[in-house]
Design a protein around this nucleic acid. Structure first.
Length: 297
DNA sequence: AATAATGACAACCGCCTCGCA
DNA sequence: ATGCGAGGCGGTTGTCATTAT
């Protein structure tokens, strides 16, 4: 990694030679580069799209001089270089949305990402696989099992809501959201090497905290979950949301979740988890599993 | 200090759908 | 009707930084 204008970027040397696949053709030997994108490649792609627009990715890849496939160009643009791509920690609001939407739609990452502006389907997918599935593994159950679904709906989601509310009332007790390592903090920097994007896309958990603290409204609906970092608020009304996705009436569910008691004995009362298993979670509520700043990690 | 294990995320792959000739 | 290319999507792998031993 190297730094340009405060950005963490992959250095050209980080792409090993084996990541360049050569394909021969009789008229014109063409190389297809694979692996991490270099700063130079990013700049070429950004400049080309600024001048010619998105789309027609195969011809873009050829015309721009990039030795990449059209698919690779498209992916790089959509997931990384495109303006308004948000990076950094997944906020509690976003976590809540992801849980809710996934329970409804499953692994429809693209669809889920439509409700988290700035987040890509790839990022949500990675979040699910690295964080959520990890906890399912810790619970020794499948992510689609009833046990895990119950844990999500009756413990984690209300807990998230509680934290969001706490933040909105100014206490902001547990941010940054996750127990981020220094590596995560480093990833908060904007990857887009285009200087025109530098100012608008930086984000930090601290600013997220400030944003939530300043919010006078408890987060109870999907639209309330669109309060962004950097002081930017991309709130949509429930009416707007209904226009986009009329089948998605989440407000009632959110209210239900918000009013559901967090029953510490839930998993001991039923047959969902026996006492030993409950203990194996790390102490259950009040134990390390639920203790501290981090719900998910 | 060295090495292994783990976490996070970028990138690739294969399959599918859709539009067009 | 059909073949083909482009683009989209979800699953999987690769890479690198960090943490643990």
């Amino acid at each position: 990694m190297e730094t340009i204008n405060g950005l963490m970027v992959c250095s050209p040397s980080s792409a090993s030679s084996k990541q360049v696949a050569a394909r021969s053709s009789e008229e014109e030997p063409t190389e297809v580069r694979r692996g991490p994108w270099t700063v130079e490649e990013d700049l070429v792609l950004i400049n080309y799209i600024e001048n010619h627009g998105e789309g027609r990715w195969n011809s873009l890849a050829h015309s721009s001089g990039l030795k990449r496939t059209g698919k690779s160009c498209r992916l790089r643009w959509l997931n990384y270089l495109r303006p308004n791509v948000r990076r950094g920690n997944i906020t509690p609001e976003e976590q809540l949305l992801i849980l809710q939407l996934h329970s409804r739609w499953g692994n429809r990452w693209s669809k889920i990402s439509q409700y988290l502006p700035g987040r890509t389907d790839n990022e949500i997918k990675n979040y699910w696989r690295t964080r959520v599935q990890k906890h399912a593994k810790q619970l020794r159950c499948d992510v689609n099992s009833k046990k895990f679904q119950d844990a999500m709906h009756y413990l984690w989601m209300p807990r998230l809501l509680e934290r969001i509310r706490a933040a909105s009332t100014g206490s902001c007790p547990s941010l940054p959201v996750s127990s981020t390592s220094s590596s995560n903090d480093q990833r908060l920097v904007h990857p887009n090497p285009n200087p025109s994007h530098l100012e608008e896309q930086y984000s930090s958990s601290e600013s997220a905290c400030r944003t939530m603290v300043s919010s006078p409204v408890p987060v109870l609906s999907v639209s309330d979950c669109y309060s962004f970092q950097d002081g930017e608020t991309n709130s949509i009304s429930d009416e707007q949301r209904a226009a986009v996705a009329p089948e998605f009436d989440v407000h009632d569910e959110w209210t239900h979740i918000a009013t559901s008691p967090i029953d510490a004995n839930y998993f001991n009362q039923g047959s969902v988890v026996d006492a030993d298993e409950y203990g194996s979670w790390g102490g259950g509520i009040g134990g390390s599993f639920w203790n501290g700043d981090d719900i998910w990690l």
